[in-house]
């Protein structure tokens, strides 16, 4: 049996209402989704671009790791700060006048700050008990890799470190930021 013309008209109106509603919703949802996911593709923070002075070379004693903080410029979304503590590093040298190596204090497991235990001569993570030797090698615990080494060199009397963050929880070292 043929559909009555008014019903046909109403069926069309229903369809149009649903369509217009979907269009209206899309108008908010599409840009909204993009807005929310914006940070996924965007670089945030410009830290780690240049080496920062962290210590005087003469302060680094053999087998006595020194915890230093990297203070430098930092961009955070809409903020730009000139002097911000970006992070910490352990400076290690294993012999008098030997080369200095720098390790990020960020535990590669889940990002806690790694401490140095003088009695055992090892780096320990307080959160989940990962341990590392003076070369940054992982000795035990859940950390998927050794401590992250940072680029470092001596400039005149100063120890310079290029501070960087790395993705934690992965066996591969992946810089972020």
């Amino acid at each position: 049996m043929a559909v009555e013309p008014p019903d046909q008209r109403r069926a069309f109106l229903k369809l149009m209402t649903a369509g217009l509603g979907a269009l209206t919703a899309a108008l908010a949802i599409i840009p909204g989704f993009g807005f929310l996911c914006g940070p996924l593709g965007r670089r945030t923070g410009r830290a780690g671009a240049s080496p920062l002075r962290v210590a005087a070379e003469r302060d680094i004693k053999p087998n006595r790791p020194l915890r230093v903080t990297a203070v430098g410029p930092h961009e955070d979304a809409w903020l730009r700060m000139e002097k911000v503590t970006l992070g910490s590093a352990w400076l290690v040298r294993t012999s008098e006048d030997g080369p200095i190596r720098a390790f990020s204090t960020v535990c590669p497991h889940l990002g806690c700050g790694v401490d140095f235990d003088e009695s055992s001569g090892k780096f320990n993570c307080p959160c989940h008990t990962s341990a590392f030797d003076l070369d940054g090698r992982c000795l035990g615990g859940p950390s998927p890799r050794g401590l992250d080494e940072l680029e470092t060199h001596v400039e005149g009397r100063d120890v310079m470190v290029r501070y960087q963050r790395f993705r934690v929880g992965t066996s591969k070292r992946e810089p972020i930021g």
């Binding site: 929310l36 996911c37 940070p39 996924l40 965007r42 670089r43 945030t44 923070g45 955070d76 979304a77 809409w78 903020l79 889940l110 990002g111 963050r165 993705r167 934690v168 929880g169 992965t170 972020i176 930021g177």
Partner: peptide
């Protein structure tokens, strides 16, 4: 970071929660 350890989507999930690659304003 735990969210970041999820297979495949982990990295994006972590960035989504953090509002970027690292912890900060967002």
């Amino acid at each position: 970071t735990i969210a970041g350890s999820a297979p495949v989507v982990g990295g994006s999930a972590q960035k989504f929660i953090q509002g970027g690659a690292t912890f900060g304003s967002t």
